[in-house]
Design a protein around this nucleic acid. Structure first.
Lengths: 216, 216
DNA sequence: GTTATCTGACAATACGGATTGTCAATACTG
DNA sequence: CAGTATTGACAATCCGTATTGTCAGATAAC
């Protein structure tokens, strides 16, 4: 019963496995095509051609273009965040060190993969409420990786200042990244990291100052 | 000859004047409609209805939807920047004071006009290269208003750090603004200004530190 | 009042892409 | 090998909007 008759194998693969493979190919192809013509310029047909699949398989895995965009975004960003978290952990106990490690990894990857960078930095905005929600979620994670929310800030922030700070920080980093990418990396990674870090430091230190307003 | 036969008057207006008036009505209507359904959801027809004009007049003044978007953007942002410049000037000689004055005006206006705020903060990105160029230009102006480029920084920045700093600063402010607007203004203007200013201060002070790297 | 100009409503056309459907070719199973 | 599941190519349909065109009615000039 446990291994009830499985679906016919093709290329040594389960029906499920084949489906999963096609799904991945579509995601990879989408990233590629988005990078060429942007999300808006990307037609279902073009993506399918790039994936060497036909439209039928598109709708097998995704309800519509937007679903694929979200899947592709999560695919890329999820992996990136994992790497950043690992890099931060490897950075030791010092908040400053971990921050720099995470940022360095971030900008390094951005430089290694220009195509997805452009799309997922820029075009991900304003597509639809669903996409925006996904992006907001990712940005929250991003922020928490860079500057982990202090436990002791729990009660001391009824005003929502912490939210503003983390917004600003993420906005600064993303904005720097965006321009750096679209100008094709005019500055070395270290310089970019240094500047980005100086904005993150605002969120890092300002949160503490807040505890004792007299410091400012 | 000087006052050669002008076009027939309608409603006491020149042909030119009527055209200009229609153009303005279209821009106002566009801002309204964009605010309701977003730029992408805004059809030519809907905008024309809101403007109480027919499509014919749309194409009289604009080559296509994108042209109207750009015109509307420049209309709103141009005015805003004028006001910010004035506010900054009224702030006196102190860079910090001028910064706060400009930011206060900025966030105050944002709160007064939620609809255009959303569109021109968010949806303006990634429409097309032409629109992006217009936006980049506006952001440069914005940056220069907040933190006027120091004259003495001329030679000391071959690395493009100043560019990175101003990108980050603008990114932080815009990002804060965006979320603040879409969350319907949870914090008072003063708090938002204070946090935004702390990010701007990075660009303000970091530029100086750069002159003597030992300071950091 | 007559005529030329301008206006508003709306029809006609054009276009591009999403989504679904058909069918023959191919790859596996027994 | 015969039979069925699976695939790939592509046609057919659907849908919505941009853009252009038509025409009767309204408005100003003389």
């Amino acid at each position: 019963m446990a291994s009830s008759r499985r679906a016919r194998l093709y290329g040594g693969m389960d029906a499920e496995e084949r489906r999963a493979e096609r799904r991945l190919k579509l995601i990879d192809a989408a990233i590629e095509v988005y990078g060429e013509v942007g999300y808006r310029g990307a037609t279902v047909k073009a993506i399918c051609e790039a994936a060497e699949l036909t439209e039928r398989y598109f709708y097998e895995s995704f309800a519509n273009s937007e679903a694929l965009l979200i899947a592709a975004y999560n695919h890329v960003v999820g992996h990136l965040h994992e790497e950043m978290t690992a890099a931060a952990a490897a950075g030791g106990d010092d908040a400053e060190m971990r921050l720099r490690a995470a940022l360095t990894l971030y900008f390094t990857r951005l430089k290694e993969h220009p195509k997805p960078a452009r799309v997922f930095l820029l075009e991900i905005s304003g597509i639809s409420p669903a996409v925006d929600a996904v992006k907001l979620d990712a940005l929250r994670v991003f922020s928490d990786i860079l500057v982990p929310p202090a436990l002791d800030a729990k009660g001391s922030d009824k005003s929502g200042t912490a939210t503003l700070l983390s917004n600003g920080m993420v906005g600064a980093v993303i904005s720097i990244a965006l321009r750096w990418v679209s100008r094709q990396y005019p500055q070395p990674v270290e310089d970019v990291v240094a500047v980005a870090a100086s904005f993150c430091r605002v969120a890092l230190t300002e949160a503490n100052h807040r505890q004792d307003p007299r410091l400012r």
